[in-house]
């Protein structure tokens, strides 16, 4: 498992380790050392210090926020680390599945995913149909992708980088290295939900999960009713699982 631990502390360290002398002296501000003392009236120094203090305070909450809430990249790294450690453990299969399912529930925003796949068809669903859809869609994804972890064979995941997107989203790029040396590009799109980053789409080799299901649902809803789509998802869920 290749891990790239992001260094969270060093980024803010320099800000906090700055010593603040009050009132400021020539020692504090190196540029002032060459100036003759009489040219510098204390009002100017105070102003300078006030400006410095303002910036310090202004950026303080941002740093504190960043330190407490992991970024999108850290979130993906955590999910990868947690999942791999579960897969490598000696737990029985059903326990592995339920643990991974719990991680998925806390890190994926299945409601947003579900809404995005229905898109403009969302309003055609009644409130109870919407709730029904989100529930069945979550089960459907769990069945379709949860069982894939059973075939885990020491694949490794490397978090490569991140990219800013519209709506304040962030895409985190990763590579899955299969045993045969095959590399698969997997991108995770994350959106903040109550100050936490959560995954709203997974793109494998350019194929987006949201886009893929949106097209399929659109095809069914073009001529069919919401009930027809719900029935098809329920049928799929009821099928025997490997």
């Amino acid at each position: 498992m290749m891990t790239r631990n992001s260094n969270k502390e060093p980024r803010i360290h320099s800000t906090f380790s700055m010593r603040i002398d009050f009132p400021p002296t020539e020692n504090t501000i190196p540029a002032l050392q060459k100036c003759p003392r009489n040219e510098m009236d204390s009002g100017f120094l105070k102003l300078l210090f006030a400006a410095g203090l303002f910036f310090f305070v202004a950026f303080l909450p941002v740093h504190v926020f960043a330190a407490n809430n992991p970024g999108a990249r850290e979130t993906v790294q955590t999910i990868v680390d947690e999942t791999v450690s579960i897969l490598k453990s000696k737990l029985p299969l059903h326990e592995k599945r339920s643990k991974i399912s719990a991680i998925a529930d806390s890190r994926f925003d299945f409601d947003t995913m579900g809404r995005l796949t229905l898109a403009k068809n969302w309003s055609r669903f009644s409130t109870s149909e919407q709730a029904d859809f989100l529930r069945s869609f979550r089960t459907f994804l769990g069945d379709a992708y949860g069982t894939k972890f059973d075939q885990y064979q020491d694949e490794t995941v490397q978090v490569l980088g991140e990219r800013s997107e519209t709506r304040g989203d962030i895409t985190v790029q990763t590579t899955l290295l299969r045993n045969g040396g095959e590399k698969i590009a997997i991108d995770y799109r994350l959106r903040t939900h109550e100050a936490n980053w959560r995954i709203i789409d997974v793109t494998i080799e350019g194929v987006s999960l949201v886009s893929s299901y949106r097209s399929q649902f659109q095809e069914i809803l073009e001529n069919g009713t919401p009930q027809e789509l719900l029935r098809q998802i329920r049928d799929k869920n009821a099928q025997e699982k490997p």
């Binding site: 080799e205 350019g206 194929v207 886009s211 893929s212 399929q216």
Partner: peptide
Amino acid sequence: RSARESSLDYYVFVRDAWTQNRNTK
């Protein structure tokens, strides 16, 4: 096989996935 199992309309899935994959390449 798993792609077939995890799609509701396999034809649409392949059409969409192929197009997206080509565009990415």
